[in-house]
Design a binder for these strands. Structure first.
Length: 111
DNA sequence: ACTTTGACTATAA
DNA sequence: GTTATAGCCAAAG
């Protein structure tokens, strides 16, 4: 596979997300240059579980701060559990103070 | 090559 | 608060 693959770029960004921080699909897509392709980020995450090393997809949520992708994990509550373990407050599948812990790859990530 | 799909986002009603 | 619709684009069937 080429390192320039869209998926690989997504994985690279997601793996750079610091612990206790989260980002959105749109932010990742925007960082890759196509902010409209937020769906592709999610689609990439669909393959993420078979990637090596594993991608911390639990740090990626939708722009509403909601854990929309939790059903794609082994169990629907793993995602919230991992986030809480990193200090992220999650309630009713929504990240509390989401904007405070939001990590923008376009600004925080330095290539 | 064509159609469907998808862990999204924005807008509208 | 909800549902509906459209735009978006690459992978999968």
């Amino acid at each position: 596979m080429k390192e320039t693959d869209f998926f690989q770029q997504v994985y690279q960004v997601v793996r750079e997300i610091p612990s206790g921080r989260v980002t959105t699909y749109g932010a990742i897509a925007s960082c890759l240059g196509s902010k409209q392709s937020s769906r592709m980020v999610g689609w990439a995450m669909n393959k993420a579980h078979q990637q090596n090393p594993s991608v911390p997809a639990h740090r990626v949520v939708n722009r509403n701060g909601q854990l929309t992708g939790k059903h794609h994990f082994e169990t629907p509550f793993i995602m919230q559990q991992l986030l809480e373990l990193e200090g992220v407050v999650v309630k009713n599948d929504c990240i509390q103070k989401f904007e405070s812990i939001f990590w923008d790859p376009a600004k925080e990530l330095i290539l």
